[in-house]
Each structure stands twice: as C-alpha cells, then as structure tokens.
Amino acid sequence: LAALHAEGPLAGLPVTRSDARVLIFNEWEERKKSEPWLRLDMSDKAIFRRYPHLR
C-alpha cells in the first residue's frame, strides 16, 4: 500500500519516495501484461521525473 496526500494541491500523489516506488511498481506490473518489453525503473531520477514534488 502507498500513502497518498489526502487533500490540497498534492491530493492523490505519493507522500514519500517509497510510496512512489509502490505506485510505479503496481503500474508496471499491470502494463507488462500488454507491453512485456517494458523495463521497471524505480530510480530516484525516474521518481523525480514523475513526481517532482518529492525532490
């Protein structure tokens, strides 16, 4: 499970980098069924690119 911001401008976004990794992994797991070539990237760089508020 990932903790998400409940309200405000960040509502629905992950609270920590660990939470972001959970979301990225879950999405990758779903997408790899139809796109088996996808690589999993959970590096800090990938997290910041996707969720800049975690910098």
Rank of each mutant, 00 (worst) to 15 (best):
R39N: 11
L54P: 00
A46L: 08
N26I: 14
A3W: 13
H53V: 01
P52G: 03
A2E: 06
N26E: 10
Y51K: 00
I47H: 00
F48R: 05
A46I: 08
Y51S: 00
P36V: 04
L4E: 06
F25P: 00
S34H: 13
R31A: 09
S43H: 03
V15P: 02
R17V: 15
K33N: 11
G12Y: 06
L38S: 08
E30N: 11
R50F: 06
K32M: 08
R21I: 08
R50C: 07
N26H: 14
K45I: 10
R17L: 15
R49M: 14
Y51D: 00
A2L: 13
D19T: 02
P36C: 07
M42A: 06
E29R: 15
R39L: 12
F48T: 08
L38R: 09
Y51A: 00
R50Q: 08
F25S: 04
S34W: 11
L10Y: 13
V22T: 12
K45P: 09
V22R: 12
R39Q: 14
E7R: 08
P9G: 05
K33S: 10
D41F: 06
E7Y: 12
E7T: 13
V15N: 04
I47D: 00
F48V: 11
R55P: 05
F25R: 11
R50H: 06
A11G: 07
L13F: 07
R49D: 14
K32N: 08
S18T: 11
H5E: 03
A46T: 10
H5N: 06
L1F: 13
E35A: 07
S34G: 11
L54D: 00
W37T: 11
D41Y: 06
P36Q: 07
L23E: 02
S18K: 15
L40C: 08
P36I: 06
G8M: 05
S18Q: 15
A2P: 13
R39G: 08
S34L: 15
R21T: 04
K45L: 12
G12A: 04
I24A: 02
E35G: 03
K33Q: 12
F48P: 00
P14M: 01
D19W: 04
R31D: 03
G12W: 04
R31G: 07
E30Q: 14
S34E: 12
L54R: 00
L40S: 02
D44R: 08
A11K: 15
Y51M: 00
D44K: 08
L38W: 08
N26L: 15
R21A: 09
W37I: 04
L23T: 04
Y51R: 00
F48G: 08
M42D: 08
P36S: 06
W37N: 13
A46S: 09
K45G: 11
P52Y: 02
A6R: 13
V22S: 09
R49Y: 12
E7P: 08
P14I: 01
G8C: 06
K33A: 10
S43V: 02
R31K: 12
V15E: 04
W28L: 02
Y51N: 01
K45H: 13
T16W: 03
E7I: 10
P52R: 03
H53A: 01
P52I: 02
R31Q: 09
S34V: 13
H5W: 13
G12T: 04
A3H: 15
L23P: 00
V22K: 14
H53E: 00
L40R: 02
R39T: 14
S18L: 13
G12L: 05
A6G: 12
A6Y: 10
L10P: 04
E27W: 06
E7M: 10
N26Y: 12
R17E: 09
I24F: 06
L54E: 00
H53D: 01
F25W: 11
E27M: 08
A3F: 12
F25I: 12
A46P: 01
A3D: 10
S43A: 03
K45S: 14
N26A: 14
D44V: 08
W28E: 02
A46M: 09
D41C: 08
P9C: 09
D41E: 06
A20I: 01
W28P: 00
P36M: 05
L4I: 11
S18P: 05
A6F: 11
E7C: 12
D19N: 03
P52E: 03
L40H: 02
W28K: 00
S43N: 03
G12H: 05
T16D: 07
I24M: 13
R17Q: 10
E27A: 07
A11Q: 13
G12P: 03
K33R: 10
L10M: 10
D19F: 04
R21E: 08
L4K: 07
S34P: 02
V22D: 03
E35S: 07
A11F: 12
H5L: 05
E7S: 14
P36D: 04
D41G: 02
N26V: 11
A20C: 02
R50D: 02
T16A: 07
D41L: 04
E30I: 13
R17H: 09
P52V: 03
L23R: 03
A11Y: 11
I24N: 00
I24H: 01
G12R: 06
P14T: 01
M42Y: 08
L23Y: 05
W28N: 01
A20W: 01
E29M: 15
I47N: 00
R39C: 15
L10D: 04
R39K: 14
R49P: 01
P14W: 01
L23H: 03
D44I: 11
L13K: 07
A11H: 08
F25K: 09
D44H: 07
V22I: 15
A3Q: 15
L13A: 03
T16N: 11
R17N: 08
L10G: 03
P52Q: 03
A20S: 01
R39S: 11
Y51E: 00
L23Q: 05
I47W: 01
G12E: 04
A46K: 06
L4G: 04
R39A: 12
A11I: 11
P14S: 01
H5T: 05
F25T: 04
H5A: 04
L1D: 10
L13V: 03
N26W: 12
L40N: 02
A3I: 14
R17P: 12
L54Q: 00
V15Y: 06
F25N: 05
L23A: 05
W37C: 13
F48C: 08
P52M: 02
G8T: 05
R55H: 08
I47S: 00
A6W: 11
L13C: 08
R39E: 15
E7Q: 12
R21F: 05
H53R: 07
E29I: 15
M42K: 03
L38M: 07
V15S: 03
D41R: 03
I24P: 00
S34M: 13
E30R: 14
W28F: 10
D41K: 04
V22N: 08
E30F: 12
F48S: 10
S34A: 12
S18I: 13
H5G: 03
P9S: 10
R31S: 06
F25Y: 15
P9K: 09
R50M: 08
D41V: 04
L23N: 02
P9I: 08
S34K: 14
A2K: 05
I47G: 00
R17D: 07
A20V: 01
R17C: 14
Y51L: 06
E29N: 15
V15L: 10
R17A: 13
P36H: 08
L40I: 07
D19K: 02
W28G: 01
S18F: 14
T16C: 09
V15W: 04
I47F: 01
R55A: 12
F48H: 07
L4A: 05
H53P: 00
E27L: 07
R55V: 11
R21K: 12
E35Y: 11
K32R: 14
L13T: 03
W37D: 11
L38I: 11
W37P: 03
E27I: 07
S34F: 13
K45Y: 12
K33M: 10
A6I: 12
L23G: 01
E35M: 08
N26C: 12
W37V: 05
N26R: 15
R39I: 15
V22Y: 10
I24C: 07
V15T: 05
R49S: 14
A20Q: 00
N26P: 01
P52T: 02
I47T: 02
E35L: 08
E35F: 09
E35V: 05
I24K: 00
R49N: 13
R17I: 15
E30T: 11
R55T: 09
F25H: 08
E27P: 00
A2T: 07
A20M: 01
E29T: 15
A20T: 00
L4Y: 07
Y51P: 00
E29A: 14
L38T: 11
A46V: 10
F25E: 04
V15R: 12
A2S: 07
V15H: 05
V22L: 15
V15K: 12
P52S: 03
T16Q: 07
R31T: 05
L4T: 10
D41P: 01
R17W: 12
H5C: 07
A11R: 13
K32P: 02
S43M: 02
L4V: 14
I24L: 12
A11D: 06
L38V: 11
P36Y: 06
R21V: 07
K45D: 15
D44C: 10
K32Y: 09
L13E: 04
D19I: 03
K33L: 12
K45R: 13
V15G: 03
P9N: 08
E7L: 09
E27V: 05
L54Y: 00
D19P: 01
L1G: 11
W28H: 05
F48W: 09
R31N: 08
E30M: 13
P14Y: 01
G8V: 05
L40F: 05
L23D: 02
K32V: 15
A11T: 12
A3C: 15
N26G: 08
W37L: 10
V22G: 03
R50W: 03
L13W: 05
R50I: 09
S34D: 14
K33G: 09
L38F: 15
K33Y: 09
S18V: 10
G8H: 05
P52W: 02
L4P: 03
A3R: 15
S43R: 10
P9T: 08
S18Y: 15
D44L: 14
E7K: 10
L10S: 06
L38H: 09
R50G: 02
A6M: 14
T16S: 12
R49T: 14
I47K: 00
R31M: 09
R39M: 14
L1K: 14
K32S: 13
L40V: 05
E35I: 08
L23W: 03
W28T: 01
